[in-house]
Design a protein around this nucleic acid. Sequence first.
DNA 1: CTAACGGAGACTGCATGCAACAGGTGACCG
DNA 2: CGGTCACCTGTTGCATGCAGTCTCCGTTAG
Lengths: 250, 250
Amino acid sequence: MAASATDTATSQMMRAQLRLRELILSGEFRHGDRMSELPLVERLGVSRTPLRLALVKLEHEGLLQELPGGGYAVREFTIHDIAQANELRGVLEGTAARFAAERGTPRRALRPMQRVSDQIAEVIYRADYESFERYVALNGRFHAELVRLAESPFLERALDIVTCVPFASASSFVLSEAELPASREILVIAHNQHLALIDAIAGREGARAENIAREHARLALQNLQIVLRHRGVMARVPGHSLTTFDVDEG
Amino acid sequence: MAASATDTATSQMMRAQLRLRELILSGEFRHGDRMSELPLVERLGVSRTPLRLALVKLEHEGLLQELPGGGYAVREFTIHDIAQANELRGVLEGTAARFAAERGTPRRALRPMQRVSDQIAEVIYRADYESFERYVALNGRFHAELVRLAESPFLERALDIVTCVPFASASSFVLSEAELPASREILVIAHNQHLALIDAIAGREGARAENIAREHARLALQNLQIVLRHRGVMARVPGHSLTTFDVDEG
DNA sequence: CTAACGGAGACTGCATGCAACAGGTGACCG
DNA sequence: CGGTCACCTGTTGCATGCAGTCTCCGTTAG
């Protein structure tokens, strides 16, 4: 109960939403499973009312889908969905970068982003697992900073929808790759793109910033390809159980 | 109560959501107004439980914002928000067009879109109000068709968030412009862009399709500039009361 | 042996009661 | 006369009871 997401001082609905999302992505349920309320009430320790609100929110996020007869079920994610969600993330983050560049974000406002980037530079050359964890956190901060610079609440909202899709968030696979050889190279490439992104925004090069961010997002798909070849690693990726990778048909 | 959105045979929550959105956009509330539940219960004829669910959904959509002390208030939309939401719509519809083009959408699948476009061609040269109404409906169908072609549920979801912003939807101002001289020209331009869009998708020209759709969305912003110079017209645009057009500062 | 019908169980959607919290107002004290 | 404290009202968040509906299984008739 220390560093968990189960922080009190928040509403029951929030607790239910966070915990339920965590449960779903951790593979506790199979896709298509009905999310019956009463079992969840027992499990999450909240009443039906806030649980129901959380279900509505998760449905809106796209993790759940409404059933015809009422109620919700865990949504299924095909490789096609994931690819498009990830591409969409690139589009949105690219737009954020373009907005920031076109507005003429002053150097001063770019300082936090630069600082995160510097910290990333320190960890990508270490091979220990702790450094990977630290990278994930820093990478998340970098992307959050990018969205903040766009100053567009709707963009932020749209990104919320996309990034909760399993495998489509910024650093989905990094942790799982800690043991794979290709991982460090990818981190180096990603860091280089971060630097280019900062440079483009500072130079008010909107189109360049947009394209860099798009390409940057596609790294996650490259990672997916890599991880798919190592099923053992795959099993530890959050949300893997929600996906159907029918690669044989393609 | 005949052709209203208050169709029964749907859940109370749906009814509350639709009716409430309608109320908000019709200017029934000022931005910043607290959406107290009990008065709304009386007004909408639904109980607190489904009303509350509708509030959560509308907050997620962005029409409402959470208050620090709990509860919700009508969100305010600045000209800045609207411009960015509209630009974002262009980005997303552009992505939809690109997806459709890159996938190689067959001619046959483009047929419905083509048909809508043909119907639009018939109405844009008439000046009566009924034709404008018909145009709005057809234009909506055209854009819905475009999103359908993308076959990306998350893209659809992201667009839902953007298009519910007042003035950022595809044909926000058309009806209000029925009486303005510039209106017909804009319809002609829009129709031409529709044709180009179909051509680009059919020819698998992804980048072209994306750029056309982006520019196409910017027409709505041009419309906003025009309408802003005619306050009398402005007052009849749905959602106008939620906005603050402090143009003097810019 | 199969198919259809009836009943029971479960689940959801909805309504309402209760408690806690915030905000505002009035009275009292300095 | 001003400031502060206490009370009161309004509102939200939560819990739970109730009714409608859907499904599944068992039984019975053909």
